[in-house]
């Protein structure tokens, strides 16, 4: 219990310190040991998120973006395992933390928003019951105060008539409403870090815009750091401060959003951005990336993108190391689009 009390006070101290990142992930490796071989779902991933910052973690299916999120929360179940690396949350290593400690952090200091809000919501309990439980699980607060806090959190997400929603069951709400409730629950205990795993993918465009708007505003207001996992670069282009692009378990490129979108360095980012229709002229062929996302089982050594890469050479048989070519731009490539970016 003492550990809990410490962290309850810590945030205030830490938040003043702008330079210390909320989360630092170093050389994280999460592998799944299946019957047909080991899957290196996350392979040597490093990144950090600062207070109030939104990091967009972009990648296609199988790139390991969601597994990275689950690893941070300690939610990897066998046959998966964090093999090596460090996940430092405000200086505390989560890889070596006890399950009890992780349990205490989750929903309190670190919260998660899933693609399907029903992962968060219990279908047989009223919204207020769930929200009050979520508060009381982590702090001493009487029921009335907790309910008021739940009301405030719902109001923050811009949900119409929050009082009515509190008395509703999840099935009485629309998909967008449910996701808003899930977001309110994530923000309930004013966490230091929120991991959002494609929370708007299943929603309609106008509803997605509302959710993005509210998530962005909440992060700025509360100073919560956020990792927004998505397959849609266009979503993070408008939302994130920085972007990390993942491919086959590795982060291939990191940088400030504008830099990555306007001047991508890694051939994969270049290809991905080139294949987005809105960036092209109507009716013309898109610049497609040939081939398909590789099978992570028995992935050959070297750069995982080499089979699809127009710039690949024999050098790519060796795994490229992370290099910081420009300030704040880290990339993993032997042949980056450096000349184009420099212009």
């Amino acid at each position: 219990m003492t550990a809990v009390d410490e962290t309850m006070e810590n945030p205030e101290i830490q938040r003043d310190d702008e330079t210390a990142p909320t989360l630092v992930v170093e050389n994280l490796k999460t592998h799944f040991f299946t019957r047909i071989g080991a899957v290196k779902a996350v392979d040597d991933v490093s990144f950090s998120v600062k207070t109030g910052e939104i990091l967009g973690l972009a990648g296609e299916s199988g790139s390991g973006k969601s597994i990275t999120g689950f690893s941070i929360l300690g939610l990897i179940d066998p046959p998966g395992r964090v093999v090596s690396g460090a996940i430092r949350f405000k200086g505390e290593d989560l890889v070596t933390a006890t399950p009890e400690r992780l349990q205490d952090l989750r929903g309190n200091r670190i919260a998660m928003i899933f693609q399907d809000p029903m992962m968060t919501l219990n279908p047989v309990l009223r919204i207020d019951t769930q929200m009050i439980e979520a508060i009381q699980a982590h702090r001493k607060m009487d029921k009335k105060a907790a309910r008021q806090r739940a009301y405030d959190a719902l109001e923050m997400t811009g949900i119409p008539s929050p009082g009515e929603r509190l008395n509703a069951y999840p099935h009485q709400l629309s998909g967008g409403m449910r996701q808003r409730v899930a977001i309110a629950i994530a923000f309930l205990n004013e966490p230091d870090l929120i991991i959002a795993d494609e929370p708007t993918t299943a929603l309609d465009v106008t509803i997605q815009a509302q959710i993005l708007h509210e998530a962005q505003a909440l992060c700025k207001r509360t100073g919560t750091a956020m990792i927004w996992i998505t397959h849609d670069l266009a979503v993070v282009a408008g939302l994130a401060d920085r972007i990390a692009v993942m491919y086959a378990g590795r982060i291939v490129e990191t940088g400030v959003t504008d830099d990555v979108i306007d001047k991508p360095l890694h051939p994969y980012s270049v290809g991905l951005l080139g294949s987005v229709p809105s960036a092209n002229k109507r009716g013309e062929r898109l610049n497609q990336i040939p081939g398909m996302t590789p099978n992570l089982i028995g992935l050959p050594p070297g750069c995982a993108f080499k089979a699809r890469c127009p710039r690949a050479s024999d050098q790519c048989d060796a795994t490229p190391e992370v290099s910081e070519l420009l300030p704040g731009r880290k990339i993993r490539c032997h042949h980056p689009h450096f000349e184009e970016a420099a212009q």
Binding site: F32, T34, I36, V39, A41, S61, G62, G64, S66, I67, F70, L73, L75, I76, D77, G80, Q103, R106, G107, N108, A111, M112, I113, F114, Q115, D116, M119, T120, L121, N122, V124, L125, Q130, E133, A134, Q136, A137, H138, A182, I185, A186, D197, T293, P294, N295, L296, I297
Partner: peptide, 26 residues
Amino acid sequence: MSTEATPNLAGADGAAQAAPELAETG
């Protein structure tokens, strides 16, 4: 599940969701 209130963390569910992504690549 129900007593372990903090619903946004349901551990088992979380990892269950991790599986499809693997299935896609494998």
